[in-house]
Amino acid sequence: MNDLRTKLMEAARSHSPSDAVPIGFEKQVMAQVLALKSTRQPGLLRAPVDAWALWTRTFLRATWSGLGVVMILSLGSLAVPPSDGDDSDYQGLMVDSIAMPIDETGGEIL
C-alpha cells in the first residue's frame, strides 16, 4: 500500500499546477486595494503594533498603580493611633453573647 501511495505522489509531483493568471487580474486586485485605501486610509498602513512594548507598558502601569495603593494603605495604617490594648472587653462581650440563655418564650423580653 505504501508503494501505491508513493506512485500516486509521483504522479501528482509530475504535474505541477498551472501558473496561468486570468487576464486583468492585477487590475481587479488594484481596484480592491484602492477601494480599501479610500475607506480605511487613516489607519490602513499605520505602524505595526509592538506587542511586547504594549504588554510592558500595561504591566508597568499596573505595577505603579499597585504600588500607589500599597503606599496609601501603609500611610493610612500609620496615621491611625494604636489601640489602647482593651481587647479583653471585646472578647468578654463575644463570650457573653454566646453564653446568654436562649429565650424560650418566643423572643419576648420579660
Partner: peptide, 27 residues
C-alpha cells in the same frame, strides 16, 4: 513607495508574484 503613499506601485508587486501565488492556490 507603497508605504509612502504611491499605492498604484503595489500593482508591480502583484505582477511580480501573482503567477507563483496562483500555483500555490491551485494546489
Amino acid at each position: 513607495a507603497v508605504r509612502s503613499g504611491e499605492t498604484e506601485r503595489f500593482e508591480e508587486l502583484i505582477c511580480r508574484y501573482q503567477a507563483r501565488l496562483f500555483v500555490m492556490a491551485r494546489r
